[in-house]
Every structure is written in C-alpha cells, then in structure tokens.
Simulated scan of single mutants.
Amino acid sequence: MNLETFREYCLSKAHVDEALPFDDVTLVFRVNNKMFALLSLREDREKSCNLKCDPERALELRSDFTGITPGYHMSKKHWNTLSFNEDVPDSLIYELIDHSYDLVFKSFSKKIQKELSQ
C-alpha cells in the first residue's frame, strides 16, 4: 500500500479529518477529534501506520504477520503498527482501517453516534 492510497481511504470515511498535531511527519486521522489512524511520513524509515485494534485480535495479528507489531509510541495493548513493506496484504490493511474506525466510532455515546450518522 502506498501513503496516498491509505490517506484517501481514511478520508473517505464519514466525519474524518486529518492533522499534524505532533510533528510534521506523523499524519493523524480523526473521527470527531478522536484518533483512529496515524501515518508515518518519514522518508528515512519504512512506510508504516498505527491503527487501533481490539486487544485479543491485536495479539493474534502480531503472531500471524511479521509486519504487524505493537503500536510504536502508542498503547501496546490497543494499537498496532503495520509495515507497508512486509507481509501485510492491502486487503488486510483496509479491513484494519475499518476496524479501527469502528472501534473509535462505537466508543462515542449513542447521542453522538446518532448525530454523526445523520
């Protein structure tokens, strides 16, 4: 997966915006101001992203794919780092973006979920 494809897919989700709140090389995607994905724009490192994940599934994915590791600079329990140059297929990256977005969306109150769904 390339960076622009990842970015476009994240931005295609409802009520998502992007920002650079930490530095100029970490693009953050948020739904209703809550992070669900981070994309590394560093030129000197392997292309990667961080995605929120159910803790049990996160452990499963890490054991199945060498390109999925505990979240870099994030809660290791709830976040994974996915390397774009490893054994992680694009189809799985799309699925995990959806999973991350859904986890964050479902964390909002029913009232906010309803407001965002309109």
Rank of each mutant, 00 (worst) to 15 (best):
L116F: 08
Q118Y: 10
S83G: 07
N80G: 00
D102L: 08
P55K: 03
E115G: 03
R42W: 05
A14Q: 14
T81N: 00
M35C: 01
S109E: 01
F65T: 09
Y101A: 05
D87P: 09
A58S: 15
C49Y: 01
L39M: 15
L103N: 12
F65Q: 04
D87N: 14
K52P: 00
N50P: 00
T69G: 01
H78Q: 10
F6H: 09
L27W: 05
D24L: 01
S91W: 00
M35F: 12
Y94F: 13
R57I: 13
E8V: 07
D24G: 04
D44Y: 07
S91G: 06
V25Y: 08
V104Q: 10
E43S: 13
K52E: 06
C53E: 08
T81D: 04
E4S: 14
N2F: 11
F105Q: 05
I112R: 14
S40R: 04
A58Q: 07
F105I: 11
I93G: 03
I93F: 02
K76T: 01
F84A: 14
T66G: 11
N32Y: 13
M1P: 05
L3D: 12
S117F: 00
A37F: 05
A58Y: 09
I112E: 14
F22D: 00
V88Y: 09
S117Q: 14
L11Q: 13
S109C: 03
E95H: 09
S83T: 07
D87C: 06
E60M: 09
Q118W: 01
H78D: 12
E56F: 10
Y72M: 02
L61F: 11
D98S: 04
F22M: 02
I97H: 06
L92E: 11
L27M: 11
N33K: 14
F29H: 09
T66Q: 13
T69R: 04
S109T: 15
S48A: 09
E4A: 07
P89L: 09
K111Y: 05
D102E: 14
L92R: 12
C53R: 03
F105R: 06
D90A: 14
M35P: 00
R45C: 03
A19Y: 05
T81I: 07
A58C: 09
E46I: 01
K76C: 02
S40C: 13
V25L: 04
E60V: 13
R62C: 00
D90G: 08
P89C: 07
L82Y: 15
D23T: 13
P70Y: 07
K76E: 08
H15G: 05
N50S: 15
T66V: 08
G71V: 10
L39S: 13
A19P: 01
V25K: 09
R7S: 15
Q113N: 08
E56V: 10
I93W: 00
L92M: 10
